[in-house]
Simulated assay, not measured.
Amino acid sequence: MRTLRLTPLTVPAVLAGVLALAACGTEGAGAPRAGGPSCGPETAAAATGGTDPAGDEGTGDVDIVDIVGSDVASPACAPAIRITSHEREPFTYTVTLSFLSDSGAAMLNTEQTVPAVGPGQTVRRPVDLAAAEAAGAGSGPGAGTPRHVKVLKVRSVPVDEAPVPSGACPPSGVRLTADQGDAAMGLRVVGLHLENCSAAPYHLDGYPQLQLFDAAHRPVTGIKIRHGSSGSVGAEFDAPPRPLTLQPGETASSGLTWRNTVTDGTPVDAPYVRVRARPGADPVMVTPELDLGTTGKLGVSAWHKSEADTAR
């Protein structure tokens, strides 16, 4: 990934077809903002990469555009995210950005969400520079004013399956989210969390139902989903399922565990997991970034109430 001084970094090949970075002015090449400096012309970073849903990376969801002359430190030419959807239904995009110092040192990574991009719709959102300004007030190797921004990762999920961590309760009556997980010595563990945000009891009995998908939203097959962790995580993870009733406001947790061991064969990555809390439940697509190596295995634990709710 090469760095362009005073510009957003060019989008790397592995993200072809996934993100657009735009600067100030109109969509026309080199058009300056009224009363401000020209930020340079837009140039296509990938002519066709944004329309190939069968590619190894990306989803064919957006057009790639690179803006020459954008400067994070210049309010008139601050970068923006521009996404043009080629999906057949609305998708929500989460873009992971890294702010860099003038020397190229990473200062801070942030996520920015662009919700509900409809089929054929183009949306443009300014990059949130508040986090970059906070990083610039720090000290150490990355201290100073952020001068560049680069794309680390882009993920997208159907709007109807996007996690709803806060706000109005989803029509399903429950919130299902995944945490950031933990990794040690090649063992990965990611928690799944379910909150009953409805006014009625919610019943669980068993394990979440899972479907795995790659970066292009294609189903990942050949992975054995097993109950428990075979003792590698702990007794709670391997506890057998039992019927649970979540009263309004109560929560339950499950978890995913895997190893990223690579031996013979092709490593498998499945960034997306479609989760159903119980048979027939509305699906929620989370992004635990499963780097399954060549193990062909993924462990899942049974639902159990949170400690606070169990103690009631």
Score class of each variant (00 low, 15 high):
residue 1 M to N: 08
residue 3 T to M: 08
residue 5 R to D: 08
residue 16 A to N: 09
residue 21 L to W: 10
residue 22 A to Q: 11
residue 26 T to A: 15
residue 28 G to V: 11
residue 35 G to Q: 01
residue 37 P to D: 09
residue 44 A to V: 15
residue 46 A to T: 14
residue 52 D to A: 09
residue 54 A to V: 10
residue 54 A to N: 13
residue 55 G to Y: 06
residue 55 G to E: 10
residue 61 D to C: 13
residue 76 A to H: 03
residue 77 C to E: 03
residue 81 I to R: 01
residue 81 I to C: 10
residue 84 T to H: 15
residue 84 T to V: 05
residue 94 T to F: 04
residue 95 V to D: 07
residue 102 D to E: 13
residue 109 N to G: 09
residue 112 Q to I: 04
residue 114 V to L: 12
residue 116 A to V: 02
residue 126 P to V: 11
residue 138 G to P: 01
residue 142 G to I: 02
residue 148 H to N: 12
residue 164 V to T: 15
residue 168 A to M: 11
residue 170 P to G: 10
residue 173 G to L: 13
residue 177 T to E: 14
residue 177 T to K: 12
residue 177 T to R: 14
residue 181 G to S: 08
residue 182 D to H: 11
residue 188 R to W: 06
residue 191 G to V: 02
residue 192 L to K: 15
residue 197 C to Y: 08
residue 198 S to M: 05
residue 201 P to W: 07
residue 213 F to T: 01
residue 218 R to P: 02
residue 224 K to M: 04
residue 230 S to R: 09
residue 232 S to L: 04
residue 234 G to S: 06
residue 238 D to N: 01
residue 244 L to A: 01
residue 244 L to S: 00
residue 248 P to T: 02
residue 252 A to G: 09
residue 269 D to E: 13
residue 270 A to M: 07
residue 274 R to I: 04
residue 279 P to M: 03
residue 280 G to P: 02
residue 281 A to I: 04
residue 288 P to W: 03
residue 289 E to S: 08
residue 291 D to L: 12
residue 293 G to S: 09
residue 299 G to A: 12
residue 299 G to M: 06
residue 303 W to E: 05
residue 304 H to G: 08
residue 312 R to S: 10
